[in-house]
Amino acid sequence: RADKQHVLDMLFSAFEKHQYYNLKDLVDITKQPVVYLKEILKEIGVQNVKGIHKNTWELKPEYR
């Protein structure tokens, strides 16, 4: 399990490339446990629960 700041850096870097990611792809990118990753994502992102981007994560507007 990596340092939180290191995980945040990896996530922000990923979100610079694409606006939406599913959790599986973010786990592959960060190599972090799902529960730990979700904890961090809830602080900086929102999970889309409907629409064409259903079940994906994106950054909260203040982090874009």
Results as ranks from 00 to 15, higher is better:
I44F: 05
H18S: 12
N55R: 07
E43V: 06
K60R: 12
K54D: 10
E58H: 08
L41A: 00
V35H: 05
E39H: 11
E16Y: 05
L26H: 00
G51R: 04
G45F: 00
T56G: 08
L59D: 01
I52W: 08
P61T: 12
K38L: 14
L11Q: 01
W57D: 02
L37K: 01
T30D: 00
L23C: 04
V7Y: 03
A2S: 15
G51S: 07
L8K: 15
E62Y: 12
A2G: 15
V46N: 08
K4E: 06
K24W: 06
Q19L: 04
D3S: 10
P33R: 04
K54E: 14
D28H: 11
Y63Q: 06
Q19C: 06
D25R: 05
R1Y: 03
E16D: 11
L26P: 01
T30C: 07
W57M: 04
E16S: 11
I29C: 05
K24T: 13
H53D: 08
T56Q: 14
L23S: 03
D9K: 15
V35M: 13
H6T: 15
E43F: 03
L37W: 00
L59Q: 02
N55Q: 08
L59K: 03
E43A: 04
R64L: 12
K4D: 05
G45M: 03
D28G: 13
D9M: 08
E62C: 07
V27T: 08
D25G: 04
K4A: 05
S13Q: 15
Y63C: 09
D25I: 03
L37T: 03
S13F: 07
V27W: 03
E58D: 03
N22I: 05
W57F: 05
V49F: 06
Q5N: 15
H53I: 14
Q32W: 04
L59P: 01
K54P: 10
Q5R: 10
N22L: 09
L23D: 03
A2T: 15
K4S: 07
N48T: 10
I29W: 15
H18I: 05
L23H: 00
D28K: 09
P33A: 02
A2W: 03
N48W: 04
Y21E: 01
H53Y: 07
E62Q: 11
T30R: 00
T56Y: 11
N22S: 15
Y20D: 05
E16V: 04
V46L: 14
Q19G: 07
T56K: 14
A14L: 13
H53M: 09
S13A: 13
N48D: 13
V49T: 15
A2P: 12
Y20T: 12
Q32V: 12
V27M: 13
G51K: 03
E16Q: 12
L59I: 07
I29L: 12
V34T: 12
D25N: 07
R1P: 05
A2H: 06
D28C: 11
F12R: 11
Q32F: 11
D25C: 04
P33W: 00
W57V: 06
K54N: 11
V34Y: 04
V27S: 09
T30W: 02
K54T: 10
D9W: 04
L11W: 00
V7D: 02
I29M: 14
E62N: 12
N48V: 13
V7C: 08
E16C: 07
I29D: 02
